[in-house]
Nucleic acid binder design. Structure first.
Lengths: 200, 200
DNA sequence: GACTTGACTACACGATCGTGTAGTAGTTTG
DNA sequence: CAAACTACTACACGATCGTGTAGTCAAGTC
């Protein structure tokens, strides 16, 4: 029988279902039986292919990481994009990003390593861009965290602006708003100096 | 017997233990037995005082919300602070903030309402501050989310900068870095315009 | 054609979960 | 003093969890 496009193997379906459910409900919140049901297989098959829940999670980590890097490479190849990469907004990358953040929050080393890699990238980019923060590393870490913030709080942000940011329209809107955060100086250097003195 | 300062009632100890464990491990990750053990009581007493896990969570939501607003009011009374409020950095507020974010991510209405309240505050403040974004609501939502991002990813950010941001020193450092994000314009309005045209 | 191998299911296991029940000790109330 | 109430513990319950075991079935191998 021919395999139609999107007609994945059971192993791939399990992995995709796991990434989806883990990302939505967290690692603890999604049971192997839930994942098996979502993939349309028995729970035993999950164990057969991945051995344990922890191993399944590591496989998801690895796959999500590779796909994210792959998508990022594709996007930066087809257009010279700026440091505020649009990877996170890519339709395929979206569930991957959700999963990685959840996994990261639950202590995944792979996901954390990917974050650190992102911080490195931001740091290099900002240096090449001519930005000279007093603390380049801290600056890059803050920017990297900010890039994920809207993702993590997607439900709350959606509710706040009255528009689902997981749709292209809402996504665009919050993307624009984020750009304005980076465009409008909220504080002048003088104000920062003043605040620093208050703290002492 | 006199009650020493900090010698809380069992009910308060349970609530505080729940906020701590829920915040660290997530709602699903912390069992009633864990919470009871952390509070030094039997698991039955948790049920006696709060009825159910869901009710315990709602009590934690309510308490955390009230305490956060209370701390915020105290801080803004003792010093006219700017819109980038230092509430989140207050030592007492820290575990409360951790809890609220977790609860929010797990779908708490109370925590989400507090977030929306924060967006309102940011929007009002930025308007009074003379900031004129094209999308004031989206801008405020993005800023509110950013304020929480460093919190949520505290472990990863700490690892990235090689310093624990839950300590005063590390906290100060990442706070400064965040201020620089708001001080240094990353994109000029012309660049934003250019990016918008690319998307179409 | 017998044998092996891998994909897959069905089912049972111990542990842990939230919850329910029964009962004790101490204080308050009439 | 007795009754009632509150704080609290011990323990048992059904459900669900991750995991383990046994076995089916089809495809490939010699």
């Amino acid at each position: 029988m021919d395999r139609a496009v999107g007609d994945l193997t059971a192993r791939a379906r399990i992995r995709d279902a796991a990434i989806g459910l883990f990302g939505e409900r967290g690692i603890e919140g999604a049971s192997i039986r839930d994942i098996a049901a979502a993939a349309g297989v028995s729970s035993g098959l999950v164990r057969h292919h991945f051995g344990s829940k922890e191993a399944l999670r590591e496989a998801c980590d690895q796959y999500a990481k590779e796909r994210m890097l792959q998508i990022g490479a594709e996007l930066s190849a087809e257009a010279g994009v700026s440091g505020l990469d649009p990877v996170a907004l890519h339709p395929v990358a979206f569930p991957l990003q959700l999963y990685l953040v959840r996994s990261m929050m639950d202590g995944s080393e792979t996901a954390t390593a990917l974050f650190l890699q992102g911080v490195d990238a931001v740091e290099e980019w900002s240096a090449g861009y001519g930005i000279k923060p007093k603390d380049p590393r801290g600056y890059a870490a803050a920017l990297a965290a900010i890039k994920l913030s809207v993702f993590i709080l997607r439900d709350q942000v959606s509710k706040a602006i009255g528009e689902d940011i997981t749709t292209p329209a809402g996504y665009n809107r919050i993307g624009q708003a984020l750009m304005e955060v980076f465009t409008i100086p909220l504080l002048t250097p003088e104000q920062v100096e003043k605040l620093n003195q208050q703290e002492k």
